[in-house]
Design a protein around this nucleic acid. Structure first.
Ligand SMILES: Nc1ncnc2c1ncn2[C@@H]1O[C@H](COP(=O)(O)OP(=O)(O)OP(=O)(O)O)[C@@H](O)[C@H]1O
Length: 743
DNA sequence: CGCCCCCTGATTTTT
DNA sequence: TCAGGGGGCG
């Protein structure tokens, strides 16, 4: 028996057991259908490495694409081994890429204190880039709008293809010359570097570049990881696949996935990555699990039937057999319209709970697209059913939250011009153009007089650019961000470093290389300070090293230590630190009051509710000890709403998209909106390819353990008018003997 | 140039 | 239903 009290052989079936115990230095591919215990295999393999191969948690790299799947994976490892998520190098590709770049980015000229742009930020930034480079671009009506432009560029980057190639393959209907869009992409990229921004794609692309261009760094990390485990491997894109190949060049890779569950090809996921795994890793051992432990045989038969129309690569065709029993078939409900559907689903939920066998939290309601959740939400509220909805507007993407974050971000990185620009636009009579002028003036003064941007903002020539009626408000804004800046300087000073970019403002491309390198150096200091902050000591990393086996570190690993986290998850230790070292929550408090609180009252009729969000934000900030970590997580952690500790305990029905449900399981699952035009979507039908939709439907059905209920509205409101909708073709393709009808 | 009003048309999925 | 574009006024 081992440290964890796990009976590996007893708790796993033979196929799982051989995958778990396969040599760590040989590539392993676990390819199996839904609910067959792939994630279980992955988590046990981690436990095996810890128990039998004397790996330390920080020698294990765990990756997956979505936040939810990452959390599921890490939580399950925690319950199995007792090692908390921070002990490992683990999380989404983006969050781990972020960690790599913060540590090692300098090697490829990325300053470690960069600001992460979320999708809204990058869209706004791209728009500005276009307007600078091609002022009339958006006046040409055939040209793509910013959103599409961003999608094209992003898709190209995620598939490692050139913009013209992407245009030709996927956007050939666009009139705009591909070279022009390629040029915009280039300019966007250049300007991001200049402002020290990383968008989501940079977190992968620059990570890849780092590994490609600095072989010493690559080799150091490749050597550090005893094994790299990837869940949901079928949804990796070219960029992620390349990163893995670079890091796992010694074959220490465990890939886990199911080609029938590939649902992210629209953002570049390559199903071939998993199908041709053996071509790239000829030494790979492939493990297949044919047994499904999650669902009743009836649910499984239904799910298999959904898939039967699909053409799969023969080699990887899987036949799942249920390991458990069950009696009831999936139930199909037909409703008049969306609101009647909501009512019926809500009634079913109440029935299930009043039976006493299930809690609200055992139930998930899944849908193809977020707008379908609206009617459900209403009915749930009406019937007083506790629920949590994780689709739609993300908490941190709401304007008022981003405004507050913008104030803190600007204080932390004065080159983050977009953040301050965003705030300036709230001043009366100040729009995009005036905001530009104000900020340019501030930059100019700061450079000319060698003062900080913050001081420059109070300089007369700068104030002169502010419309008279906005000056009072402007003054309050400046005083608030200056106060935040002062807090930021205190927080980094007490951490042992100094502000990275306190004085320089923007390097305005006029060839002052000297200033640039000074900035890099300072950033280095700053970053080391963060990593070594006293709070970091009380983190999981040290808790782990007390319990786990501490391994000696190679030379040079002191400053770039191999411990996966630098942050403190819980600020419980930080709480006791006196206000001398301002904490993230103090920043939040400061930013939410003062200037912004009055702006919000004039800006939003529902400001009262938004104030409640500030309380939630404050509580969330309390979990962090480092302001940089806090800001990173705001951008990367796109959860619907950070739940308070007490709130998380309340049993609630979960409303979410099928995409979000991937990798999860629930005793009772509802799939709503199973009508042609909704699921599969109208778009996919028109484009003539519904295979990914089919896989998505399969993912949805296989989330269910005990009961699966599928419903569809017969009429749907599309725009102003109503449309009759036939049941989903996926439902129709299933033999009616495999389900019951409630009508 | 900011701001307001009217009209249109469209609704996928994530980091 | 409402976000976003276009047009016109101050
Ligand atoms: N050998 C086993 N014995 C008992 N239960 C098992 C076994 N293997 C898997 N299970 C259970 O089956 C369920 C599904 O497992 P898991 O989530 O790991 O599957 P998966 O293949 O990752 O599914 P998906 O493809 O849907 O993500 C879990 O509740 C798991 O505990």
């Amino acid at each position: 028996m081992n440290d964890f009290g796990i009976d590996f052989e007893g708790e796993l079936n033979p196929a799982q057991f051989s995958a778990v115990t396969a040599p760590y230095n040989r590539p392993a591919l676990v390819l199996a259908g839904a609910g067959s215990g792939k994630t279980r295999t992955l988590t046990y393999r981690v436990a095996w490495f810890l128990a039998e191969c004397s790996f330390a948690p920080r020698e294990i790299l765990l990756l997956t694409f979505t936040n939810k799947a990452a959390r599921e994976m890490l939580d399950r490892i925690f319950s199995l081994t007792g090692f908390s998520p921070e002990a490992f190098w683990g999380g989404t590709f983006h969050s781990v890429g972020n960690r790599f770049l913060r540590r090692e980015g300098r090697a490829i000229g990325v300053e470690p204190d960069f600001t992460i742009l979320d999708s809204d930020d990058s869209e706004a930034f791209l728009k500005r880039c276009v307007e600078e480079e091609y002022p009339n671009f958006f006046s040409v009506k055939d040209n793509p709008r910013v959103k599409l432009l961003r999608d094209i560029i992003s898709y190209a980057r995620n598939t490692c293809k050139s913009v013209p190639q992407t245009m030709a393959e996927c956007f050939s209907w666009l009139e705009t010359p591909a070279e022009q869009i390629a040029d915009i992409a280039k300019f966007y990229d250049f300007d991001k570097r200049r402002k020290n921004y990383c968008d989501f794609d940079d977190l992968l692309e620059l990570w890849k570049r780092l590994l490609e261009e600095d072989d010493a760094v690559r080799a150091r990390y490749a050597g550090r990881f005893g094994n790299i485990l990837v869940d949901e491997y079928q949804d990796t894109n070219s960029l992620q696949c390349r990163i893995l190949d670079l890091l796992a060049d010694r074959g220490d890779l465990t890939a886990v996935g199911d080609d029938a569950q590939c649902i992210y090809s629209w953002r570049g996921a390559q199903i071939d990555n998993i199908l041709h795994f053996k071509d790239r890793y000829p030494a790979a051992a492939v493990f297949k699990i044919e047994r499904n432990y999650r669902s009743t045989p009836q649910i499984l038969d239904f799910a298999n039937a959904v898939l039967s129309g699909m053409s799969t690569d023969d080699e990887y065709k899987k036949s799942l057999v249920a390991a458990r029993g069950g009696t009831s078939k999936p139930l199909v409900i037909r409703a008049m319209d969306a609101s009647s559907q909501g009512r019926q689903v809500a009634d079913c939920v109440l029935d299930a709970v009043s039976s006493g066998k299930y809690r609200y939290s055992d139930i998930a309601i899944l849908y193809r697209s977020h707008f379908q959740a609206m009617d459900l939400q209403l009915q749930m509220q009406y019937k007083n059913i506790p629920f949590v909805m994780t689709s739609g507007m993300k908490f941190f993407e709401q304007a008022h939250i981003k405004d507050v974050a913008a104030m803190i971000r600007f204080a932390a990185n004065p080159r983050d011009f977009m953040s301050f620009w965003r705030l300036l636009k709230y001043l009366p009579k100040v729009g995009e153009k005036t905001a530009n002028k104000i900020f340019s003036a501030a930059l100019e003064r700061s450079q000319k007089r060698r003062i900080s941007v913050f001081e420059a903002l109070s300089d007369k020539p700068v104030v002169a650019k502010v419309p008279v009626g906005a000056r009072e408000s402007f003054g309050e804004l400046v005083s608030d961000v200056s106060a935040l800046r002062e807090m930021f300087e205190r927080s980094t000073a007490s951490g042992g470093g100094s502000g990275a970019d306190s004085e320089s403002g923007e390097n305005s491309g006029n060839g002052e290389g000297g200033e640039n390198s000074a900035g890099v150096f300072q950033a280095d200091l700053f970053y080391a300070g963060r990593a070594a902050s006293p709070n970091a000591d009380s983190t999981a990393a040290s808790r782990i090293s007390a319990g786990g086996d501490e391994k000696g570190e190679g030379p040079g690993s002191e400053s770039d230590g191999d411990s996966p986290v630098r942050d403190s998850e819980s600020a419980s230790g930080a709480d006791s630190v006196v206000s001398d070292n301002p904490l993230p929550k103090d920043f939040v408090k400061a930013a939410c009051s003062g200037w912004y609180s009055s702006v919000m009252k004039t800006q939003y009729a529902d400001w009262q509710e938004r104030v409640d969000d500030f309380d939630a934000l404050y509580e969330y900030a309390g979990r962090y000890a480092d302001i940089g970590d806090f800001l990173d997580n705001i951008a990367l952690e796109t959860d619907a709403r950070p739940e308070s500790e007490a709130d998380a305990k309340v049993s609630k029905v979960r409303l979410m998209t099928v995409h979000q449900a991937k990798g999860l399981e629930f005793p009772i699952v509802f799939i709503v909106g199973a009508a042609d035009g909704l699921f599969p979507t109208k778009r996919s039908i028109e484009e003539g390819d519904v295979e990914e939709e089919r896989r998505l439907f399969y993912v949805a059905a296989t989330r269910a353990m005990d009961y699966l209920v599928i419903s569809y509205p017969r009429v749907g409101a599309s725009g102003g008018n109503f449309e009759m909708r036939p049941p989903s073709r996926f439902l129709e393709s299933v033999d009616s003997s495999l389900y019951d009808c409630a009508f």
